[in-house]
Design a protein around this nucleic acid. Structure first.
Lengths: 251, 251
DNA sequence: CGCAGGATTGATTGCATTCAACGACCGTGG
DNA sequence: CCACGGTCGTTGAATGCAATCAATCCTGCG
Protein backbone atom coordinates (compact mmCIF):
# COMPACT_ATOMS: atom_id res chain seq x y z
CA UNK A 1 0.00 0.00 0.00
CA UNK A 2 1.02 3.56 -0.53
CA UNK A 3 3.51 2.53 -3.12
CA UNK A 4 5.27 5.48 -4.61
CA UNK A 5 4.47 6.01 -8.26
CA UNK A 6 6.24 3.76 -10.67
CA UNK A 7 8.20 6.52 -12.33
CA UNK A 8 11.76 6.83 -11.06
CA UNK A 9 11.90 10.38 -12.35
CA UNK A 10 8.86 11.52 -10.42
CA UNK A 11 10.23 9.93 -7.27
CA UNK A 12 13.66 11.46 -7.54
CA UNK A 13 12.10 14.86 -8.19
CA UNK A 14 9.91 14.49 -5.15
CA UNK A 15 12.88 13.47 -3.06
CA UNK A 16 15.12 16.28 -4.22
CA UNK A 17 12.37 18.83 -3.65
CA UNK A 18 12.46 17.77 -0.01
CA UNK A 19 16.01 19.05 -0.13
CA UNK A 20 15.41 22.34 -1.90
CA UNK A 21 13.86 24.13 -4.86
CA UNK A 22 14.31 22.97 -8.45
CA UNK A 23 13.63 25.04 -11.55
CA UNK A 24 11.62 23.75 -14.49
CA UNK A 25 14.85 23.36 -16.43
CA UNK A 26 16.38 21.34 -13.59
CA UNK A 27 13.30 19.13 -13.50
CA UNK A 28 13.51 18.63 -17.25
CA UNK A 29 17.15 17.62 -16.99
CA UNK A 30 16.24 15.06 -14.36
CA UNK A 31 13.42 13.75 -16.50
CA UNK A 32 15.90 13.22 -19.28
CA UNK A 33 18.06 10.99 -17.10
CA UNK A 34 18.39 7.48 -18.52
CA UNK A 35 17.10 4.91 -16.04
CA UNK A 36 16.43 1.24 -15.92
CA UNK A 37 14.19 -0.43 -13.40
CA UNK A 38 14.68 -3.85 -11.82
CA UNK A 39 13.19 -5.93 -9.08
CA UNK A 40 15.76 -7.43 -6.75
CA UNK A 41 15.31 -10.11 -4.12
CA UNK A 42 15.62 -9.67 -0.40
CA UNK A 43 19.24 -9.80 0.69
CA UNK A 44 20.64 -8.81 -2.70
CA UNK A 45 23.74 -6.71 -2.81
CA UNK A 46 23.27 -3.39 -4.60
CA UNK A 47 26.82 -2.28 -3.85
CA UNK A 48 29.78 -4.28 -2.69
CA UNK A 49 32.64 -2.80 -0.74
CA UNK A 50 35.62 -2.40 -3.05
CA UNK A 51 33.59 -2.16 -6.24
CA UNK A 52 34.00 0.83 -8.51
CA UNK A 53 30.65 2.62 -8.87
CA UNK A 54 29.10 2.22 -12.33
CA UNK A 55 25.42 2.59 -11.61
CA UNK A 56 23.68 4.69 -9.05
CA UNK A 57 20.62 3.04 -7.63
CA UNK A 58 17.46 4.76 -6.51
CA UNK A 59 15.22 2.79 -4.18
CA UNK A 60 11.67 2.79 -5.55
CA UNK A 61 9.98 0.37 -3.15
CA UNK A 62 11.18 -1.67 -0.18
CA UNK A 63 13.97 -1.16 2.31
CA UNK A 64 17.75 -1.36 2.11
CA UNK A 65 20.71 -0.84 4.40
CA UNK A 66 24.39 0.00 4.31
CA UNK A 67 26.80 -2.25 6.12
CA UNK A 68 30.43 -2.76 6.86
CA UNK A 69 32.25 -5.63 8.51
CA UNK A 70 35.27 -6.05 10.73
CA UNK A 71 38.03 -8.46 9.83
CA UNK A 72 36.60 -11.09 12.11
CA UNK A 73 33.14 -10.91 10.64
CA UNK A 74 31.22 -8.65 13.00
CA UNK A 75 28.78 -6.58 11.03
CA UNK A 76 27.70 -3.00 11.58
CA UNK A 77 24.67 -1.65 9.79
CA UNK A 78 25.44 1.99 9.02
CA UNK A 79 22.08 3.34 7.91
CA UNK A 80 18.65 2.25 6.78
CA UNK A 81 17.04 3.32 3.53
CA UNK A 82 13.52 3.90 2.32
CA UNK A 83 11.95 4.55 -1.08
CA UNK A 84 13.33 7.70 -2.66
CA UNK A 85 16.80 7.27 -1.25
CA UNK A 86 19.80 7.45 -3.56
CA UNK A 87 21.91 4.52 -2.53
CA UNK A 88 25.17 5.27 -4.31
CA UNK A 89 25.52 8.92 -3.53
CA UNK A 90 28.34 8.20 -1.02
CA UNK A 91 30.52 6.78 -3.77
CA UNK A 92 29.36 8.94 -6.66
CA UNK A 93 32.71 10.69 -7.00
CA UNK A 94 34.96 8.04 -5.47
CA UNK A 95 36.91 5.28 -7.14
CA UNK A 96 35.67 2.41 -5.00
CA UNK A 97 32.85 1.85 -2.55
CA UNK A 98 33.94 1.76 1.07
CA UNK A 99 30.94 -0.25 2.27
CA UNK A 100 28.19 -2.50 0.95
CA UNK A 101 24.50 -1.90 0.38
CA UNK A 102 22.02 -4.72 0.65
CA UNK A 103 18.24 -4.99 0.36
CA UNK A 104 16.23 -5.79 3.46
CA UNK A 105 13.28 -7.13 1.45
CA UNK A 106 12.38 -7.55 -2.18
CA UNK A 107 12.79 -4.11 -3.74
CA UNK A 108 12.25 -2.24 -6.94
CA UNK A 109 15.32 -0.26 -7.87
CA UNK A 110 16.01 2.22 -10.65
CA UNK A 111 19.54 2.40 -11.98
CA UNK A 112 21.12 5.56 -13.31
CA UNK A 113 24.54 5.48 -14.98
CA UNK A 114 27.06 7.21 -12.74
CA UNK A 115 28.55 9.43 -15.48
CA UNK A 116 25.10 10.80 -16.31
CA UNK A 117 24.44 11.68 -12.70
CA UNK A 118 27.90 13.20 -12.21
CA UNK A 119 27.41 15.32 -15.29
CA UNK A 120 24.05 16.49 -14.02
CA UNK A 121 25.46 17.43 -10.66
CA UNK A 122 28.49 19.22 -12.05
CA UNK A 123 26.67 21.29 -14.63
CA UNK A 124 23.30 22.18 -13.08
CA UNK A 125 23.76 24.42 -10.03
CA UNK A 126 20.14 23.99 -8.93
CA UNK A 127 20.38 20.23 -8.97
CA UNK A 128 23.82 20.39 -7.45
CA UNK A 129 22.47 22.29 -4.49
CA UNK A 130 19.75 19.76 -3.73
CA UNK A 131 22.14 16.87 -4.20
CA UNK A 132 24.57 18.55 -1.83
CA UNK A 133 21.83 18.91 0.72
CA UNK A 134 20.89 15.28 0.27
CA UNK A 135 24.48 14.12 0.71
CA UNK A 136 24.99 16.38 3.72
CA UNK A 137 21.82 15.11 5.39
CA UNK A 138 23.06 11.57 4.84
CA UNK A 139 26.26 12.59 6.58
CA UNK A 140 24.32 14.09 9.45
CA UNK A 141 22.48 10.82 9.93
CA UNK A 142 25.76 8.92 10.12
CA UNK A 143 26.92 11.29 12.83
CA UNK A 144 23.74 10.84 14.81
CA UNK A 145 24.29 7.11 14.60
CA UNK A 146 27.77 7.57 15.99
CA UNK A 147 26.21 9.25 19.00
CA UNK A 148 23.62 6.50 19.19
CA UNK A 149 26.26 3.77 19.14
CA UNK A 150 28.75 5.50 21.37
CA UNK A 151 26.69 7.12 24.08
CA UNK A 152 23.17 5.68 24.40
CA UNK A 153 22.08 2.52 26.16
CA UNK A 154 20.30 -0.32 24.41
CA UNK A 155 16.82 0.97 25.15
CA UNK A 156 17.50 4.42 23.75
CA UNK A 157 19.42 3.09 20.76
CA UNK A 158 16.54 0.96 19.59
CA UNK A 159 13.95 3.61 20.34
CA UNK A 160 16.02 6.14 18.44
CA UNK A 161 16.11 4.07 15.30
CA UNK A 162 12.35 3.63 15.45
CA UNK A 163 11.84 7.38 15.82
CA UNK A 164 14.19 8.12 12.95
CA UNK A 165 12.53 5.70 10.58
CA UNK A 166 9.06 6.90 11.44
CA UNK A 167 10.08 10.51 10.92
CA UNK A 168 11.86 9.90 7.65
CA UNK A 169 9.05 7.82 6.23
CA UNK A 170 6.52 10.40 7.23
CA UNK A 171 8.56 13.19 5.69
CA UNK A 172 8.84 11.18 2.49
CA UNK A 173 5.07 10.83 2.40
CA UNK A 174 5.16 7.07 2.80
CA UNK A 175 3.02 6.93 5.93
CA UNK A 176 -0.51 7.78 6.92
CA UNK A 177 0.72 8.57 10.38
CA UNK A 178 4.02 8.15 12.09
CA UNK A 179 2.32 6.22 14.88
CA UNK A 180 2.27 3.05 12.81
CA UNK A 181 4.61 1.67 10.19
CA UNK A 182 6.11 -1.53 8.94
CA UNK A 183 9.78 -2.16 9.58
CA UNK A 184 10.66 -5.46 7.93
CA UNK A 185 13.88 -6.05 9.81
CA UNK A 186 15.00 -9.09 11.77
CA UNK A 187 16.11 -8.69 15.35
CA UNK A 188 19.57 -9.75 14.29
CA UNK A 189 19.72 -6.92 11.75
CA UNK A 190 18.40 -4.50 14.31
CA UNK A 191 21.18 -5.71 16.58
CA UNK A 192 23.74 -4.99 13.88
CA UNK A 193 22.30 -1.52 13.46
CA UNK A 194 22.51 -0.77 17.17
CA UNK A 195 25.79 -2.46 18.00
CA UNK A 196 24.05 -5.01 20.22
CA UNK A 197 23.36 -8.74 20.06
CA UNK A 198 20.09 -10.16 18.80
CA UNK A 199 19.43 -11.67 22.22
CA UNK A 200 19.68 -8.33 23.89
CA UNK A 201 17.59 -6.65 21.21
CA UNK A 202 14.90 -9.21 21.85
CA UNK A 203 14.87 -8.46 25.55
CA UNK A 204 14.98 -4.72 25.03
CA UNK A 205 12.10 -4.80 22.56
CA UNK A 206 10.07 -6.71 25.11
CA UNK A 207 10.94 -4.16 27.74
CA UNK A 208 9.91 -1.30 25.45
CA UNK A 209 6.63 -3.06 24.84
CA UNK A 210 6.12 -3.73 28.56
CA UNK A 211 6.67 -0.05 29.20
CA UNK A 212 4.00 0.76 26.69
CA UNK A 213 6.45 2.65 24.52
CA UNK A 214 5.87 0.54 21.44
CA UNK A 215 3.38 -1.99 20.18
CA UNK A 216 4.20 -4.78 17.80
CA UNK A 217 1.96 -6.69 15.44
CA UNK A 218 2.05 -8.50 12.14
CA UNK A 219 4.30 -11.40 11.39
CA UNK A 220 7.22 -11.45 13.79
CA UNK A 221 5.97 -8.17 15.20
CA UNK A 222 7.38 -6.18 12.36
CA UNK A 223 4.61 -3.66 12.32
CA UNK A 224 5.51 -1.12 14.94
CA UNK A 225 2.99 1.13 16.62
CA UNK A 226 3.91 4.10 18.75
CA UNK A 227 1.09 4.75 21.24
CA UNK A 228 2.69 7.84 22.70
CA UNK A 229 5.12 9.53 20.36
CA UNK A 230 6.35 11.96 22.96
CA UNK A 231 7.22 9.33 25.50
CA UNK A 232 9.13 7.31 22.93
CA UNK A 233 10.85 10.43 21.67
CA UNK A 234 11.98 11.18 25.17
CA UNK A 235 13.15 7.62 25.84
CA UNK A 236 15.02 7.70 22.54
CA UNK A 237 16.61 11.09 23.18
CA UNK A 238 15.35 11.83 19.67
CA UNK A 239 15.68 15.33 18.29
CA UNK A 240 14.75 15.47 14.62
CA UNK A 241 16.99 18.43 13.92
CA UNK A 242 19.68 16.22 12.45
CA UNK A 243 17.29 15.12 9.70
CA UNK A 244 17.20 18.70 8.38
CA UNK A 245 13.60 18.39 7.30
CA UNK A 246 13.32 22.16 7.19
CA UNK A 247 15.20 22.32 3.89
CA UNK A 248 12.10 21.48 1.90
CA UNK A 249 10.53 24.19 -0.17
CA UNK A 250 7.44 25.47 1.62
CA UNK A 251 4.55 23.92 -0.29
CA UNK B 1 57.42 22.17 13.53
CA UNK B 2 56.37 21.33 10.04
CA UNK B 3 53.82 24.07 10.15
CA UNK B 4 51.95 24.29 6.89
CA UNK B 5 52.59 27.52 5.02
CA UNK B 6 50.80 30.54 6.31
CA UNK B 7 48.68 31.01 3.22
CA UNK B 8 45.19 29.62 3.53
CA UNK B 9 44.90 29.51 -0.22
CA UNK B 10 47.97 27.40 -0.68
CA UNK B 11 46.77 25.01 1.99
CA UNK B 12 43.30 24.60 0.59
CA UNK B 13 44.75 24.01 -2.85
CA UNK B 14 47.07 21.38 -1.50
CA UNK B 15 44.21 19.73 0.35
CA UNK B 16 41.84 19.72 -2.62
CA UNK B 17 44.54 18.33 -4.88
CA UNK B 18 44.63 15.32 -2.57
CA UNK B 19 41.04 14.88 -3.68
CA UNK B 20 41.48 15.32 -7.40
CA UNK B 21 42.87 17.46 -10.20
CA UNK B 22 42.33 21.21 -10.43
CA UNK B 23 42.84 23.37 -13.50
CA UNK B 24 44.77 26.64 -13.45
CA UNK B 25 41.45 28.49 -13.66
CA UNK B 26 40.10 26.54 -10.69
CA UNK B 27 43.23 27.35 -8.74
CA UNK B 28 42.90 31.02 -9.62
CA UNK B 29 39.30 31.05 -8.44
CA UNK B 30 40.37 29.57 -5.14
CA UNK B 31 43.16 32.10 -4.81
CA UNK B 32 40.57 34.83 -5.24
CA UNK B 33 38.55 33.55 -2.27
CA UNK B 34 38.29 36.16 0.47
CA UNK B 35 39.72 34.82 3.72
CA UNK B 36 40.47 36.08 7.14
CA UNK B 37 42.86 34.39 9.54
CA UNK B 38 42.52 34.18 13.33
CA UNK B 39 44.16 32.42 16.19
CA UNK B 40 41.72 30.74 18.56
CA UNK B 41 42.36 29.31 22.00
CA UNK B 42 42.17 25.67 22.97
CA UNK B 43 38.59 24.62 23.61
CA UNK B 44 37.04 27.37 21.49
CA UNK B 45 33.88 26.61 19.61
CA UNK B 46 34.21 27.07 15.86
CA UNK B 47 30.66 25.88 15.21
CA UNK B 48 27.79 25.46 17.63
CA UNK B 49 24.96 23.03 17.07
CA UNK B 50 21.90 24.95 15.96
CA UNK B 51 23.79 27.87 14.48
CA UNK B 52 23.23 28.87 10.87
CA UNK B 53 26.53 28.65 8.98
CA UNK B 54 27.93 32.03 8.03
CA UNK B 55 31.63 31.33 7.81
CA UNK B 56 33.42 28.23 6.71
CA UNK B 57 36.58 27.59 8.66
CA UNK B 58 39.72 26.00 7.36
CA UNK B 59 42.09 24.62 9.96
CA UNK B 60 45.58 25.98 9.33
CA UNK B 61 47.42 24.68 12.38
CA UNK B 62 46.41 22.65 15.40
CA UNK B 63 43.68 20.07 15.95
CA UNK B 64 39.91 20.23 16.22
CA UNK B 65 37.03 17.83 16.68
CA UNK B 66 33.32 17.50 15.99
CA UNK B 67 31.04 16.60 18.85
CA UNK B 68 27.45 16.02 19.73
CA UNK B 69 25.77 15.48 23.06
CA UNK B 70 22.85 13.51 24.38
CA UNK B 71 20.13 15.17 26.40
CA UNK B 72 21.71 14.03 29.64
CA UNK B 73 25.10 15.42 28.78
CA UNK B 74 27.03 12.45 27.48
CA UNK B 75 29.36 13.59 24.73
CA UNK B 76 30.38 11.79 21.59
CA UNK B 77 33.30 13.02 19.55
CA UNK B 78 32.40 12.39 15.92
CA UNK B 79 35.68 13.00 14.12
CA UNK B 80 39.10 14.54 14.59
CA UNK B 81 40.55 17.20 12.34
CA UNK B 82 44.01 18.21 11.23
CA UNK B 83 45.43 21.17 9.33
CA UNK B 84 43.92 21.45 5.87
CA UNK B 85 40.50 20.19 6.91
CA UNK B 86 37.43 22.22 6.01
CA UNK B 87 35.43 22.27 9.20
CA UNK B 88 32.10 23.57 7.95
CA UNK B 89 31.68 21.49 4.87
CA UNK B 90 28.97 19.34 6.57
CA UNK B 91 26.73 22.36 6.95
CA UNK B 92 27.74 24.29 3.84
CA UNK B 93 24.32 23.89 2.23
CA UNK B 94 22.20 23.38 5.33
CA UNK B 95 20.26 25.90 7.37
CA UNK B 96 21.66 24.99 10.76
CA UNK B 97 24.58 23.00 12.08
CA UNK B 98 23.63 19.63 13.55
CA UNK B 99 26.73 19.35 15.73
CA UNK B 100 29.48 21.47 17.23
CA UNK B 101 33.13 21.87 16.34
CA UNK B 102 35.69 22.70 18.95
CA UNK B 103 39.45 23.16 18.98
CA UNK B 104 41.61 20.63 20.78
CA UNK B 105 44.50 23.06 21.17
CA UNK B 106 45.27 26.61 20.20
CA UNK B 107 44.72 26.80 16.44
CA UNK B 108 45.09 29.10 13.51
CA UNK B 109 41.95 29.16 11.44
CA UNK B 110 41.08 30.82 8.14
CA UNK B 111 37.50 31.89 7.63
CA UNK B 112 35.79 31.92 4.26
CA UNK B 113 32.32 33.43 3.84
CA UNK B 114 29.84 30.64 3.16
CA UNK B 115 28.19 32.35 0.15
CA UNK B 116 31.57 32.71 -1.58
CA UNK B 117 32.34 29.04 -1.09
CA UNK B 118 28.86 27.95 -2.19
CA UNK B 119 29.18 30.05 -5.30
CA UNK B 120 32.55 28.55 -6.07
CA UNK B 121 31.25 25.01 -5.66
CA UNK B 122 28.12 25.57 -7.72
CA UNK B 123 29.78 27.26 -10.65
CA UNK B 124 33.18 25.59 -11.02
CA UNK B 125 32.78 21.93 -11.99
CA UNK B 126 36.43 21.16 -11.35
CA UNK B 127 36.31 22.56 -7.85
CA UNK B 128 32.92 20.98 -7.30
CA UNK B 129 34.33 17.59 -8.02
CA UNK B 130 37.15 17.86 -5.51
CA UNK B 131 34.80 19.30 -2.89
CA UNK B 132 32.43 16.41 -3.50
CA UNK B 133 35.26 13.99 -3.01
CA UNK B 134 36.28 15.76 0.16
CA UNK B 135 32.74 15.67 1.54
CA UNK B 136 32.28 12.03 0.57
CA UNK B 137 35.54 11.03 2.22
CA UNK B 138 34.38 12.81 5.35
CA UNK B 139 31.22 10.72 5.19
CA UNK B 140 33.24 7.57 4.76
CA UNK B 141 35.18 8.36 7.91
CA UNK B 142 31.95 8.80 9.87
CA UNK B 143 30.83 5.38 8.69
CA UNK B 144 34.09 3.78 9.72
CA UNK B 145 33.64 5.35 13.14
CA UNK B 146 30.20 3.80 13.35
CA UNK B 147 31.83 0.43 12.83
CA UNK B 148 34.48 1.32 15.35
CA UNK B 149 31.93 2.31 17.99
CA UNK B 150 29.49 -0.47 17.29
CA UNK B 151 31.62 -3.51 16.70
CA UNK B 152 35.15 -3.18 18.02
CA UNK B 153 36.38 -3.64 21.58
CA UNK B 154 38.17 -0.94 23.52
CA UNK B 155 41.65 -2.01 22.45
CA UNK B 156 40.83 -1.99 18.74
CA UNK B 157 38.84 1.24 18.98
CA UNK B 158 41.74 3.17 20.41
CA UNK B 159 44.27 1.56 18.12
CA UNK B 160 42.06 2.35 15.15
CA UNK B 161 41.91 6.02 15.93
CA UNK B 162 45.68 6.14 16.24
CA UNK B 163 46.10 4.43 12.88
CA UNK B 164 43.64 6.77 11.23
CA UNK B 165 45.26 9.90 12.53
CA UNK B 166 48.75 8.75 11.61
CA UNK B 167 47.61 7.88 8.09
CA UNK B 168 45.72 11.09 7.53
CA UNK B 169 48.53 13.25 8.84
CA UNK B 170 51.04 11.42 6.72
CA UNK B 171 48.87 11.80 3.63
CA UNK B 172 48.51 15.50 4.35
CA UNK B 173 52.27 15.84 4.48
CA UNK B 174 52.31 16.82 8.14
CA UNK B 175 54.57 14.02 9.33
CA UNK B 176 58.11 12.88 8.79
CA UNK B 177 56.99 9.34 9.35
CA UNK B 178 53.77 7.82 10.50
CA UNK B 179 55.63 5.97 13.25
CA UNK B 180 55.67 9.07 15.43
CA UNK B 181 53.26 11.95 15.85
CA UNK B 182 51.80 14.25 18.43
CA UNK B 183 48.18 13.78 19.42
CA UNK B 184 47.33 16.50 21.92
CA UNK B 185 44.20 14.91 23.28
CA UNK B 186 43.24 14.16 26.87
CA UNK B 187 42.24 10.67 27.85
CA UNK B 188 38.78 11.95 28.54
CA UNK B 189 38.47 13.28 25.00
CA UNK B 190 39.83 10.04 23.64
CA UNK B 191 37.16 8.30 25.69
CA UNK B 192 34.48 10.48 24.13
CA UNK B 193 35.81 9.63 20.69
CA UNK B 194 35.72 5.91 21.37
CA UNK B 195 32.51 5.66 23.36
CA UNK B 196 34.40 4.59 26.49
CA UNK B 197 35.19 6.15 29.86
CA UNK B 198 38.45 7.89 30.61
CA UNK B 199 39.26 5.30 33.24
CA UNK B 200 38.96 2.50 30.74
CA UNK B 201 40.92 4.42 28.12
CA UNK B 202 43.70 4.84 30.63
CA UNK B 203 43.85 1.12 31.29
CA UNK B 204 43.62 0.22 27.64
CA UNK B 205 46.42 2.62 26.70
CA UNK B 206 48.58 1.00 29.34
CA UNK B 207 47.74 -2.40 27.95
CA UNK B 208 48.61 -1.29 24.41
CA UNK B 209 51.92 0.00 25.70
CA UNK B 210 52.59 -3.19 27.67
CA UNK B 211 51.96 -5.16 24.50
CA UNK B 212 54.52 -3.04 22.72
CA UNK B 213 51.93 -1.78 20.25
CA UNK B 214 52.48 1.87 21.07
CA UNK B 215 54.98 4.03 22.88
CA UNK B 216 54.15 7.25 24.63
CA UNK B 217 56.34 10.20 25.45
CA UNK B 218 56.18 13.94 25.94
CA UNK B 219 53.96 15.69 28.43
CA UNK B 220 51.15 13.39 29.48
CA UNK B 221 52.35 10.89 26.91
CA UNK B 222 50.78 12.75 24.07
CA UNK B 223 53.47 11.94 21.59
CA UNK B 224 52.63 8.53 20.22
CA UNK B 225 55.14 6.21 18.65
CA UNK B 226 54.23 3.12 16.70
CA UNK B 227 57.10 0.65 16.91
CA UNK B 228 55.49 -1.90 14.62
CA UNK B 229 52.92 -0.41 12.29
CA UNK B 230 51.75 -3.75 11.03
CA UNK B 231 51.04 -5.16 14.45
CA UNK B 232 49.09 -2.07 15.45
CA UNK B 233 47.23 -2.09 12.16
CA UNK B 234 46.21 -5.65 12.77
CA UNK B 235 45.15 -5.00 16.37
CA UNK B 236 43.17 -2.01 15.16
CA UNK B 237 41.51 -3.88 12.31
CA UNK B 238 42.62 -0.88 10.28
CA UNK B 239 42.15 -0.89 6.53
CA UNK B 240 42.94 2.51 5.02
CA UNK B 241 40.62 2.02 2.08
CA UNK B 242 37.94 4.12 3.71
CA UNK B 243 40.25 7.14 3.63
CA UNK B 244 40.19 7.04 -0.18
CA UNK B 245 43.75 8.26 -0.43
CA UNK B 246 43.92 7.00 -4.00
CA UNK B 247 41.91 9.95 -5.26
CA UNK B 248 44.95 12.19 -5.32
CA UNK B 249 46.36 13.16 -8.67
CA UNK B 250 49.49 11.13 -9.33
CA UNK B 251 52.35 13.53 -8.73
C1' DC C 1 53.81 26.39 47.95
C1' DG C 2 49.58 25.11 46.69
C1' DC C 3 46.23 24.73 43.20
C1' DA C 4 43.98 22.57 39.15
C1' DG C 5 43.53 19.53 35.46
C1' DG C 6 44.64 15.31 34.02
C1' DA C 7 46.40 10.58 34.84
C1' DT C 8 46.40 6.49 37.53
C1' DT C 9 44.83 2.88 40.59
C1' DG C 10 41.63 -0.18 43.26
C1' DA C 11 37.19 -2.11 44.40
C1' DT C 12 32.71 -2.90 43.06
C1' DT C 13 28.79 -2.99 40.09
C1' DG C 14 26.06 -3.74 36.06
C1' DC C 15 24.71 -3.86 31.28
C1' DA C 16 25.21 -6.56 27.64
C1' DT C 17 27.38 -10.86 25.76
C1' DT C 18 27.83 -15.58 25.34
C1' DC C 19 26.34 -20.18 25.21
C1' DA C 20 22.74 -23.29 24.79
C1' DA C 21 18.16 -24.83 24.11
C1' DC C 22 13.70 -24.49 22.84
C1' DG C 23 9.63 -22.59 20.42
C1' DA C 24 7.01 -20.53 16.63
C1' DC C 25 6.14 -19.77 12.04
C1' DC C 26 6.33 -20.55 7.08
C1' DG C 27 7.19 -22.43 2.74
C1' DT C 28 8.24 -26.74 0.54
C1' DG C 29 7.84 -31.27 -1.01
C1' DG C 30 6.48 -36.03 -0.47
C1' DC D 1 -2.33 -32.78 4.22
C1' DC D 2 1.23 -33.17 7.07
C1' DA D 3 6.10 -34.01 7.99
C1' DC D 4 10.21 -31.50 7.47
C1' DG D 5 13.78 -28.01 7.47
C1' DG D 6 15.13 -23.47 7.96
C1' DT D 7 14.82 -18.98 9.71
C1' DC D 8 13.71 -16.17 13.26
C1' DG D 9 12.24 -15.27 17.91
C1' DT D 10 12.37 -16.34 22.86
C1' DT D 11 14.19 -17.79 27.25
C1' DG D 12 17.61 -19.04 30.99
C1' DA D 13 22.10 -19.21 33.19
C1' DA D 14 26.68 -17.94 33.43
C1' DT D 15 30.26 -14.86 32.10
C1' DG D 16 32.83 -10.68 31.04
C1' DC D 17 33.98 -6.17 29.46
C1' DA D 18 33.55 -1.78 30.59
C1' DA D 19 31.24 1.54 33.81
C1' DT D 20 31.06 3.51 38.19
C1' DC D 21 32.64 5.25 42.48
C1' DA D 22 36.29 6.99 45.04
C1' DA D 23 40.89 8.06 46.11
C1' DT D 24 45.43 9.26 45.14
C1' DC D 25 49.22 10.75 42.29
C1' DC D 26 51.50 13.80 39.09
C1' DT D 27 53.00 17.93 37.00
C1' DG D 28 52.97 22.38 35.13
C1' DC D 29 51.93 26.80 36.67
C1' DG D 30 50.35 30.98 39.17
Amino acid sequence: MLKPGRSPHALILKKLRLRGALSAADAAAIDALPTQTRTVESGSYLVREGDPPKLCSLLLTGFAFRQKMTQDGARQILSLHIPGDLLDLPSLFLKVADHSVQTLVRCEVAYIPVPALQELVLTHPGIARTMWVDALVDGSIFREWELNLGRRDARARIAHILCELASRMEAAGLLDSKEKFELPITQEQLADATGLTSVHVNRTLQALKAEGLIGRSGRSGRVVTIPDWDRLRSAADFNPRYLHLDQAVPA
